[in-house]
Nucleic acid binder design. Structure first.
Lengths: 238, 238
DNA sequence: TAGATTGTTAATCGATTAACAATC
DNA sequence: TAGATTGTTAATCGATTAACAATC
C-alpha cells in the first residue's frame, strides 16, 4: 500500500531530520524538508500522510515525532540481522559503512569463498566460508542479505540465500539476479549509475543555455548552499 | 528526449549483451533480453527503438549492432575522464571497481583532505590534496566527478566541483547535495537502499501466501535460474 | 483578522503495458 | 502458408503536482 518511492524518501527524510534534531530544531515545515531533498512541499506532505502523524498548521511537524513515526514503518522492531556475501573491496566498504552507521542493523556474518580471506577479520567481522552460509542464515533466522560478489557468482549466491530463507537482498553485484516473487531484491548498480551520469550530463548540455539565458558561466556561489536549515557541520547519523 | 529510465536500462542491456557476445551469441530476441532483466519484451523493444537499429522479424536483434548502438548513446566519444573525491573505504572500492571495469572511464585523479592519505597510492592512483582539485579539473577539462566523502563534506566538495566546471556528479555520500540546474547529479544512497530492502521485504510478507497459494515453503530450485541464455561462467565485462 | 501552513482530493504528467498490423 | 517476432500506436497504470478548504 505504501509505495517504494515513498519508503525511499522517508528513509532520506529521517536522516535529514536526525541532523535537525541534533542541532536543536523542534519543528520543520514541509517546504523546508522539500528544500533539503530538492523536492516539492506537496510531495513531502503526501509522503508524511502515510505516517499518520498530524502536523500543526502554523508550526509545521514535530521533528522527534516524525523520526519516531518513520522508524516505526522502516525499522524491524527487534533490529535487522544481515549477512554479507563477497568480501572484496566493495564488501569491506559496506561492512565499514554498516559499522559506522547503524545501531539498527546487526551484521551476523560475512562470507567469501577465497581461502585467503576466510578467517581474516575485517571491521570486526571474521570472514567465514560460504559453505557455512545456509547454516548461519537458518540458525539465526537472518532475513536480509547483501550481495557484493563478482557478477558470475551473484545468481548462485542468491539461490542459496533464498533457499536458506532470506526475504530481502541488496544486490550490489554488477548483474541482475532472479528470485522467486516473494523475495524482494533491491539492485544498486554502480556501473550503470556512473554511465547514467556521464550520458545525462552530456545530453543535458543544451539545457544550460536555456536556463542561464546567455550567461555562459554559472557562478558556483549561485549554487543553493544557503539554506534556512543547517545541513553542514554534523554527520548524518551517530 | 530519451528518458532517464531508458538510459539506465540500456546500460544494463549492454553489459548483458557483452556477455552474450563473448559466449558467441549472434542474435537475441526482445523476450530473451526481457527475461534477463526480469522485464517485459514490450519495454525492451520500446527501449531499443531509441537506438534507431532495426531488428529482424524472425531472427531478433544483432547483438553486436545493439552493443555498438548503445555505446554510441551512452559513451563519451573520446572517453570519459573522472575525478573521485573522498578516499575512504567506499572511495577505494570505487577506484578498484573503475580499474577493473572500464576502458571507457579514465580516472584522472583522486582527492582527500586527510594528510595521512595524501601522497599514498591506491589502485594505481596517487591521492592528492583537495586543494589541487579545482586546478586539475579545469586543466584537464574533467566533466564527471564521484563524491565519496562523509555527509558533512559532500555539499562543500560539490560546490567546488561545480565551480571548476564539472557537469555530472555521482553522489555516493549519505546526504543529498544541491547544485545548479545545469549540473546532473545521480545519487546512490546505500543506507536508503538497505533500509528499503528490509522494509519492503517485511511489508511484502503477505504476498508470498497469495503467490504460492498454500504451499508454505518455496523451494529454491524453483528460482528461475535455468535460462535459455547463458548468464553464468563469465564476468560481465572485460 | 490576515497570512501561512496542513491534509487531501482532483488534474496532470510520464512511464509501462497491451495490442496489433507489418514482416519474415 | 502458419507462426513468431518486430515496430509503433493506443490504453492503462502509477506517481507527481496543483489546488484549495480547513486550521491555527
Amino acid at each position: 500500500m505504501i509505495s517504494e518511492k515513498t519508503v525511499e524518501r522517508l528513509s532520506v527524510y529521517r536522516r535529514l531530520l536526525e541532523v535537525q534534531e541534533n542541532s536543536g530544531r523542534e519543528y520543520v515545515y514541509s517546504h523546508e524538508l522539500a528544500e533539503l531533498v530538492s523536492g516539492t512541499a506537496a510531495q513531502v506532505r503526501r509522503d508524511l500522510m502515510e505516517l499518520g502523524v498530524t502536523g500543526h498548521s502554523k508550526r509545521g511537524y514535530l521533528v522527534s515525532e516524525l523520526v519516531r513515526a518513520i522508524s516505526r514503518i522502516i525499522d524491524t522492531p527487534d533490529g535487522t540481522r544481515v549477512v554479507l556475501v563477497g568480501v572484496g573491496d566493495l564488501g569491506r566498504a559496506v561492512l565499514g559503512f554498516l559499522k559506522g552507521f547503524y545501531g539498527r542493523m546487526q551484521v551476523v556474518a560475512a562470507f567469501d569463498n577465497d581461502p585467503l580471506k576466510i578467517g581474516r577479520v575485517m571491521h570486526g567481522y571474521r570472514c567465514q566460508s560460504v559453505t557455512e552460509l545456509a547454516g548461519v542464515v537458518m540458525a539465526q533466522h537472518v532475513q536480509t542479505a547483501i550481495v557484493t560478489t563478482p557478477a558470475h557468482a551473484a545468481q548462485h549466491v542468491s539461490d542459496h540465500l533464498v533457499a536458506a530463507g532470506i526475504r530481502g537482498i541488496l544486490n550490489l553485484a554488477p548483474t541482475p539476479v532472479h528470485v522467486p516473487p516473494d523475495v524482494y531484491v533491491e539492485r544498486v548498480d554502480l556501473a550503470t549509475a556512473l554511465e547514467k551520469v556521464t550520458c545525462l550530463a552530456r545530453l543535458s548540455e543544451g539545457v544550460q543555455e536555456r536556463e542561464t539565458a546567455g550567461s555562459l558561466h554559472v557562478d558556483a556561489t549561485q549554487s543553493m548552499s544557503g539554506h534556512s536549515l543547517a545541513v553542514c557541520g554534523a554527520e548524518a547519523s551517530t
